[in-house]
Amino acid sequence: MPDLAPGMRVRTRSTDPDGHTRLPRYARGAVGVLVEEAGVHPLADERARGRAGTPQPVWHVRFAAADLFGAGDHTVTVELWEDYLVPIGERA
């Protein structure tokens, strides 16, 4: 994965994992913009499976409501681990 930076457009993964994830269902497979890095934390999905979890950057990712729900003039900013994100232009 290329280095992520604020302003970059990303698509969230659309897969529905078997176990715990912090990628909310409403924000899957959606295109958003990176706002700001929110620290480096072990991936919650792995920790929930009893593993130590790989530390990786977490990002505030801003979505237009219309892109998430098909309606709305607001934005929703979700906090997502890099593992959930694919930069636009790179094939998943």
């Binding site: 977490v58 505030h60 801003r62 607001h74 934005t75 900013t77």
Partner: peptide
């Protein structure tokens, strides 16, 4: 906008709304 109206907060149409989802560690 609808939920805030139910809380009694009527925002002007020109005010943008940003929702923050505390989905990780912040």
């Amino acid at each position: 906008r609808g939920v805030l109206r139910e809380f009694g907060l009527q925002l002007p149409g020109t005010t943008r709304i940003s929702v923050w989802d505390a989905s990780a560690e912040s």
